[in-house]
């Protein structure tokens, strides 16, 4: 308060931040309080605190399908991260070594493919991808999501990883060679340990996209038992049109893990968004 009196110019700044904080917090607060209410109470008094805290809403939501959606999201997100990292690391390694070995033109072609890949919006490929999933018999499997998510995340990930690989000193590379390391061993023993942080960043960014993707998730998956959270929730809502408390509890369960992950791994999110911003 005293500082405010000394710096009156800070008042509008604080007001602005407070107002925005309320706008952000209120819906979250609403979600949490209403997830403990029976339907009638949400209907009649959705702004007040629950009169009785119905913890069983969470148990019902979990059993009512959220647990399966959750597991599917974990599988799809995990699979996408692993595949994306593996493919990106290999390609970036190949590019860096080719560039330093004078095969820059070939590496340039791969770089073009990366930039080209980043320019394509997934929506544009929807109709052919749908047809392709039938031909490859991938429709209604987790692979349909993992492979497509990977394909649209790999280009940016390669660029991120490549930037770090370029900074690995050539001396180390040569030393490894002299010690008799094969090139794959060099990648494993020299390059990867030096790029842990960018790999974490890339994982977090990939997780963010895979966890929340909606369009492919509603089209490529038919079975309720294979659905990820964003598309499964649509079904969950329709089935619970009369049980809002359970529905909102399901929403909280779906949102919580990624929020926690973000708060824990904030640092990597931040550097990722800085580096990833070149996309567009």
């Amino acid at each position: 308060m005293q500082t405010l009196i000394r710096h009156p110019a800070r008042l509008p700044v604080i007001l602005l931040l407070a107002l925005h904080a309320v706008i952000v917090i209120y819906p979250l607060f609403w979600m949490i309080t209403n997830s403990f209410k029976p339907t009638e109470e949400i209907y009649a008094a959705s702004w007040s605190l629950p009169t009785v805290w119905m913890v069983e809403n969470y148990a019902k939501a979990w059993r009512g399908g959220i647990s399966a959606y959750f597991l599917n999201s974990v599988i799809v997100t995990g699979g996408t991260i692993l595949l994306t990292l593996a493919i990106s690391v290999l390609a970036a390694f190949g590019m860096v070594r080719a560039e330093t070995a004078g095969a820059g033109r070939a590496a340039g072609l791969v770089l073009m493919a990366c930039i080209g890949g980043m320019l394509v919006a997934p929506q544009v490929a929807l109709v052919p991808l749908y047809k392709m999933m039938q031909v490859l018999r991938l429709q209604d499997t987790h692979w349909a999501l993992i492979l497509t998510y990977t394909a649209y995340r790999v280009p940016i990930t390669i660029l991120l990883v490549r930037a770090v690989f370029l900074a690995v000193p050539r001396d180390l590379d040569d030393c490894a060679h002299i010690d008799g390391c094969s090139s794959l061993q060099t990648l494993w023993h020299v390059y990867l340990p030096m790029s842990r942080s960018i790999l974490l960043t890339a994982s977090v960014l990939t997780a963010y996209h895979a966890w929340n993707e909606f369009l492919f998730a509603i089209i490529f998956i038919d079975s309720d038992r294979l659905k990820t959270i964003p598309s499964g929730l649509m079904n969950f809502r329709d089935a619970l049109m009369t049980d809002w408390g359970v529905l909102v509890a399901g929403l909280v369960i779906s949102a919580a893990p990624i929020i926690v992950l973000f708060i824990v791994a904030q640092r990597y999110f931040l550097s990722g968004f800085a580096a990833g911003a070149v996309k567009g």
């Binding site: 593996a86 493919i87 290999l90 190949g94 095969a103 070939a106």
Partner: peptide, 12 residues
């Protein structure tokens, strides 16, 4: 090395 590149970049 160029051949290596194509092998490494093939999955991508």
């Amino acid at each position: 090395r160029a051949l290596d590149l194509w092998l490494y970049a093939a999955p991508f």
